[in-house]
Design a protein around this nucleic acid. Structure first.
Lengths: 191, 191
DNA sequence: ATAATTTCTTAATCTAGGTTAAGTGCTCTT
DNA sequence: AAGAGCACTTAACCTAGATTAAGAAATTAT
């Protein structure tokens, strides 16, 4: 299991005291599958780091159709960035898909940490930049690839997720209906 | 015209000396429309801030079809973040659509600036986070809205761009062919 | 001004993926 | 272990948007 300190150490070096301080501003909790950590309409007051298990973020449009924005498993961060930084009600739900242990940082503590450990500005800058890059890539993929190509890309990028999460969520992530996904999968298996 | 220092001042406060230092690490250039600042296959060594004029970033897939990732006019940043941070050849082109004045920061100078003015980590963190939020929103819009709805959203978000850039680029940005865009526009005008 | 190139429009035809609906197999419950 | 939900599949039919092609309008270059 990758700890949150190891995750930070990928990009910046904290002293033992800083590490201590950092952990003191976090809280680690266990959640059962199906727990909703955040609902649309609420203001996101926390950011989450996944120690184990799987979470997803998604929105629901008027027609009661869900769209998965993001999956997060071991070693990934997840949250509603829009709501978190604007402090306005967001559109995202965050749900536990598989029993999980999650490190929680409140925005209040996050701000204090920025003051006390300015190096963390760098860490979260790099985190945001990397996330931006992968969202840009996904955007371009949605514009230029077929559903089949997006699925293949998903498989090679997140091989572990395919067995673990209900395939309707993967269908939603790549942007097709569960019915079409099923048809497409059958077609691919024939090859 | 919004200067780059005003842009920075939105999120962090630089002393006069820091402002001086910052500007000394940038270069301001004029470019004629149609100039290509970056081509796919090249490593992006610079980030750009637009003083005036309009730029766009786009990729081209095998079929010679362009997809617009981003427009940037006065007061906006633009670049190929993937290539810039990974230092690998990128997929994006950056092109001048309307005669422009652009502030250029090389990656080398950017890194020096981070060392000399650590506050800039914070600025670029906030910049990346905001950009991330708008990419996430666009992603979800592409998954859940019709072309017509995406176009209406584009109009209300970037009203000035509509008159200024060729509509085929707007079609590409919202993810439809120029032909369909034209048909859709005619349909909307009838209402 | 005129030619050349690009952009935009219109229209006919096509298709990837959506919708609706019914049925099958899971895995939780209790 | 029997039922109640879910998750998945299959199939018929439908539609938003793509493709192809041709002409009109606008820009740009000479």
């Amino acid at each position: 299991m990758q700890s949150i300190l190891e995750n930070i150490a990928k990009h910046v070096t904290l002293t033992p005291e800083e590490q201590e301080l950092f952990l003191s501003k976090t809280e680690t909790k266990q959640f059962k599958a199906k727990t909703i950590l955040l609902s649309a309409g609420e203001v996101a007051t926390c950011t989450y780091f996944v120690n184990s298990g799987i979470l997803r973020s998604f929105n629901i449009n008027d027609n009661i159709i869900e769209h998965v924005l993001h999956f997060a498993c071991e070693g990934w961060w997840i949250g509603d960035m829009y709501s978190y930084i604007s402090e306005k009600p967001g559109n995202l739900f965050i749900e536990v898909l598989e029993d999980a242990e999650v490190v929680i940082i409140t925005k209040e503590n996050h701000q204090k940490l920025y003051q006390e450990i300015p190096k963390l500005e760098r860490f979260f800058r790099i985190l945001a930049e990397n996330s931006l890059v992968s969202h840009q890539e996904r955007l371009m993929d949605n514009l230029s690839l077929t559903a089949e190509e997006r699925f293949e890309k998903f498989c090679s990028k997140y091989p572990t997720l395919i067995q673990k999460v209900p395939q309707k969520h993967i269908a939603s992530y790549i942007g097709v209906t569960p019915e079409f996904f099923s048809k497409m999968k059958a077609r691919l298996l024939k090859k």
